[in-house]
Amino acid sequence: MGSLQSWFLFCIVHTTMVKNVYTFSNVALHKPASQDSYREIYPPSHAVDGNKTTFLHSDTVVAVPYHWWEVDLLNSYTIPSVTITSRNCCNSRFRNFTIDLTSDHLPSAQVTRLCHYYPGSFTQFATHTIACNETFTARKVKVTMDSSDERPLDVSEVKVKGLHVCGNYWLQFTLNAGLKRSEVPLDLPVVESTRACAQRCREDIDCDAFQTMTSASSVTCQLFIGRSGDTISDTNWKYYSFSG
């Protein structure tokens, strides 16, 4: 059996055995992590242990131009955003960093692409969600920070919003015009456009669908957990869900 056939068979078997394969989640939690260097009591695994009171800390004994931290997600996921919480210490230490995503569909020819460059600093114990410039499919997520001024890389937590590649190899929104999802939304911000609502859904790790109602001055945006739910006919609303 060819490798492509084997991959599709795996996806079919996997999706029939595992529930909620189509749900976004923090796919970095408890996954193996590595770092260019670290202090023994502050290992790279602290960034994916689900505990914001722990943190990783690079070793500053040897001066290097960049410090990096990486997590191996162990499978391929579609990744729209990464959420990072800085350490409860030292304002502006964590700044000017890049997030890169590496695909492993062909292990002999891995492809690394830029998710986002963040040109700024975090205050202490701050949490920010960084949306990727484009939505990519990848196995590894890497954070790299300039350390030419001998700043260590130390953060409390990294979350990666991901959807298993078998559930959705090409990520896009499906429009269901004239439908309104009737359950209580996860969040309901007022935004300036449908695009802004879609961005909110990309950035929220629990969001799988959203709906909008447009007025002359703004867009009512409602975010939902799960790709499907109870809907009613309502021509004032447009309902969008992630689909393959």
Score class of each variant (00 low, 15 high):
residue 235 T to A: 14
residue 240 Y to V: 03
residue 157 E to A: 07
residue 233 S to V: 14
residue 199 Q to T: 11
residue 208 D to M: 15
residue 240 Y to H: 02
residue 172 Q to Y: 14
residue 147 S to I: 08
residue 183 E to K: 09
residue 107 P to I: 15
residue 93 R to T: 14
residue 54 T to P: 04
residue 139 R to P: 03
residue 56 L to G: 02
residue 159 K to C: 04
residue 16 T to C: 15
residue 171 L to Y: 04
residue 1 M to F: 15
residue 216 A to W: 05
residue 98 T to L: 13
residue 236 N to I: 03
residue 233 S to D: 10
residue 60 T to M: 04
residue 77 Y to L: 07
residue 229 G to R: 06
residue 77 Y to G: 00
residue 221 C to E: 03
residue 100 D to F: 13
residue 123 T to A: 12
residue 148 S to N: 13
residue 61 V to G: 12
residue 223 L to V: 12
residue 169 Y to A: 06
residue 219 V to K: 10
residue 200 R to T: 08
residue 98 T to D: 13
residue 227 R to N: 14
residue 147 S to D: 05
residue 119 P to F: 01
residue 194 T to L: 06
residue 113 R to T: 15
residue 191 V to H: 00
residue 115 C to D: 03
residue 14 H to W: 15
residue 8 F to H: 07
residue 85 T to K: 14
residue 167 G to Y: 01
residue 121 S to K: 09
residue 134 E to M: 06
residue 21 V to D: 00
residue 157 E to I: 12
residue 3 S to G: 06
residue 119 P to Q: 05
residue 41 I to V: 11
residue 3 S to A: 08
residue 2 G to L: 13
residue 236 N to L: 05
residue 117 Y to S: 15
residue 112 T to S: 01
residue 243 S to E: 08
residue 115 C to K: 03
residue 44 P to R: 10
residue 218 S to C: 13
residue 206 D to A: 15
residue 63 A to S: 13
residue 239 Y to E: 09
residue 105 H to L: 12
residue 233 S to C: 13
residue 196 A to E: 10
residue 237 W to G: 01
residue 124 Q to I: 09
residue 188 L to A: 05
residue 132 C to A: 01
residue 194 T to M: 09
residue 207 C to F: 07
residue 84 I to R: 02
residue 209 A to E: 02
residue 137 T to G: 06
residue 84 I to T: 05
residue 100 D to Y: 15
residue 74 L to Y: 03
residue 111 V to W: 09
residue 179 L to E: 07
residue 201 C to S: 11
residue 108 S to R: 07
residue 39 R to D: 05
residue 164 H to Q: 12
residue 120 G to L: 03
residue 220 T to N: 03
residue 126 A to E: 11
residue 118 Y to S: 08
residue 198 A to K: 11
residue 17 M to H: 12
residue 239 Y to Q: 04
residue 42 Y to N: 10
residue 88 N to V: 06
residue 186 L to M: 09
residue 215 S to L: 09
residue 197 C to I: 05
residue 18 V to E: 07
residue 105 H to M: 05
residue 228 S to H: 12
residue 26 N to F: 12
residue 36 D to R: 07
residue 169 Y to S: 08
residue 155 V to Y: 00
residue 22 Y to M: 11
residue 33 A to W: 15
residue 219 V to E: 04
residue 26 N to P: 13
residue 164 H to F: 08
residue 22 Y to H: 15
residue 111 V to R: 11
residue 99 I to M: 01
residue 88 N to S: 10
residue 214 T to L: 11
residue 182 S to F: 02
residue 173 F to V: 13
residue 117 Y to V: 14
residue 130 I to W: 10
residue 38 Y to F: 08
residue 37 S to Y: 01
residue 199 Q to I: 08
residue 49 D to C: 11
residue 80 P to T: 04
residue 169 Y to W: 09
residue 184 V to N: 05
residue 221 C to Y: 06
residue 134 E to W: 04
residue 53 T to E: 06
residue 90 C to Q: 03
residue 3 S to P: 04
residue 213 M to H: 02
residue 197 C to Q: 00
